[in-house]
Nucleic acid binder design. Structure first.
Lengths: 201, 201, 201, 201
DNA sequence: CATGAATGAGCCTTCATTCAT
DNA sequence: AATGAATGAAGGCTCATTCAT
């Protein structure tokens, strides 16, 4: 028990250090030695837990995605109200990056720069989220007898794109935006558009 | 004249080759030698035109952005109709990446992976587009006496984020989407939202 | 007693494992960890019995040579007939390598690849065999009033060289040669040469 | 012309340095950096001429074998007298190793310790020599209506084994033997054996 | 001007050895 | 006594950059 716990704890420390370094430097410039130093261990130790640098990167990014996605899924799963669902996703995303600031750069700007396999894997992950979201949107449209004719997958893409853009702005931008208000405003745009409704009628 | 023209032409060839290689491989994996070979010149010659690899990258990406942005600006500048403006931007972006497919990967996925300075520069470029767009949106809202209260900068971010997401999907996704329809659908979402308008009334 | 017996048994297991691994991989490519695994013990334990990898190698190869040489000596010691003595040596060598196939590669191809000290030690061991053999040959020549004038040390070298070559061929060659016939043929060559004796007369 | 000559000259310098270092240290302990230093060039330069350390080793040992074997073949090819042929081989071998002392250790003790491919290649080379020699011996036996019944391949193996043993002794032994006498004595043993011919009659 | 052969700093990875348990 | 997790020195190889031609 104790030993496997210790190993798990050390593996976790390495993954944290890896996230920090990879996020700051990008995959290719990150040095295994730096990761080791930040994890407080020897260089060789990393290779007891991960086959090589690439494997370490993959495990790290997979862990982050797993945590993030699983959490999103469970929170949304049984939610029938689209607005609430999107709000939850948005808020959770903000929170997640706020509490993992050190890897924000990685997630937003640098994820797929290792090789084609990892790029493909990331693409597949993203596809899953899009599909999941599109399905919720579709359900919403159907259940509301919605007279508007929109492609739910397209909407999902737009929504996630907008979300990513706002994340980047919030994280790297000079004007820090309050996340609560941001969420509401963004959802308002998506639900009602920017068109002057009074004119529309 | 002739000499400086020749020089300019060679410089241009190097930049094209750099765009192709950096886009395919990413900054750190791209080899100066490959760029030289594709440009049809000797390896050392690159260093007669650019201080080093980093500088070459910067010049290349700057050139692309300059071309792209200038084109956008001039096309939109005197456009008063927001919908038309956004449509133009969207269509031009699609066309641009279609005709520069070899650097699409670079522009969408890999731009800021060199160092913090370049990341900051890119961020500033993006900021300019956002500001420009926000200004147009603001003008539209004001001139229409719009009763809806939205943050034009926020809308600009969302719009560009969505645009980027659709670009990525169109470029790397399995289902190639027709760009004309895509544009219309996307703008429809942004203008009227996804809410059931019949219910809304 | 019991403890020292146990220790001896473990030491022996390590030496056997070392012989197997060193023979298969060669000194530098052999991994201490593999030896430990094959010996069924922990990696650190090896260092309780041997100072380091080099020492382990030395002890192992010394043990093999000791067993081999002692056996040869005792079998030949009181043999007065040279032909019988050479036959015994040849047959015993074949048998020894047949029953230690796993270290044949080591003994034939890889022994002295560690450092100069070990190479010198091996050279000295070989010298002993040569001297021993030369002495027997000398005795034979003297006692037979042999009219042929040959350098017994030279003959010893030639005989052992030929023996080694045949061992290598038998072990790694495609045509497995029957050892009994081989011995007779080889001794025949050494005793009577390849010259046409009928012509000679 | 000039350039390719210079390249050839440098390649040759690298191969010489490689022979010296590999011979002294063995493949695995030899450092590429040492080879470069001895060749008087930078470490990276070696990789302009050879794919990697293994390839360098292979090219070096192949070159040595090619030079050696080709020379032997051409000298022996049209020789009908077996004794002269064997004498030529023996003398040439002595001369070759005398003039390439620095790689003697490599050729005698360490050649096949890199990997199985190279070991197999070396084995094949040796096989060629054996076959070549066996063929000459066979021709000799046939043409002389030799009444002695010996396996020419076996004789070839024995001869080469004895030759190798004498080479090793001459190179590493304390008593330097004069090569001219050595050759005669050795051939005498092979042709007439050590048996007392007066007794034989 | 243009070149590409040469360089060597830099980094990933291995593995003999140690030492806390 | 025995272990095996941890270490870090060492070495193969790459590639941006230089400079002699």
């Amino acid at each position: 028990m104790k030993i496997s716990e210790k190993k798990e704890e050390k593996r976790s420390r390495i993954l944290d250090a890896a996230a920090a370094v990879f996020s700051k430097e990008g995959y290719h410039q990150a040095k295994v030695e730096d990761i080791a130093r930040i994890a407080g261990i020897g260089k060789g130790t990393i290779y007891l837990y991960f086959k090589n640098k690439r494997h370490l990167y993959y495990c790290m990014i997979k862990e982050i995605y797993d945590i993030f996605l699983e959490s999103i899924y469970t929170q949304i799963e049984c939610e029938n109200d689209l607005k609430k669902a999107l709000k939850t996703i948005t808020e959770y995303t903000f929170d997640f990056l706020d509490s993992h600031k050190e890897m924000a750069n990685l997630l937003i700007n640098r994820p797929g720069t290792v090789d084609e396999d990892i790029q493909a894997w990331l693409f597949a992950q993203k596809q899953k989220i899009v599909d999941f979201l599109a399905q919720i949107i579709k359900k919403y449209a159907d259940s509301n007898n919605c007279d508007r004719d929109f492609d739910s997958t397209l909407v999902a893409h737009c929504f996630l794109g907008a979300l990513a853009a706002l994340m980047a702005e919030r994280l790297f931008g000079y004007n820090k935006i309050d996340s609560a208000k941001l969420t509401d405003k963004m959802l308002d745009i998506f639900f009602h558009g920017i068109h002057n409704s009074s004119v529309q009628v």
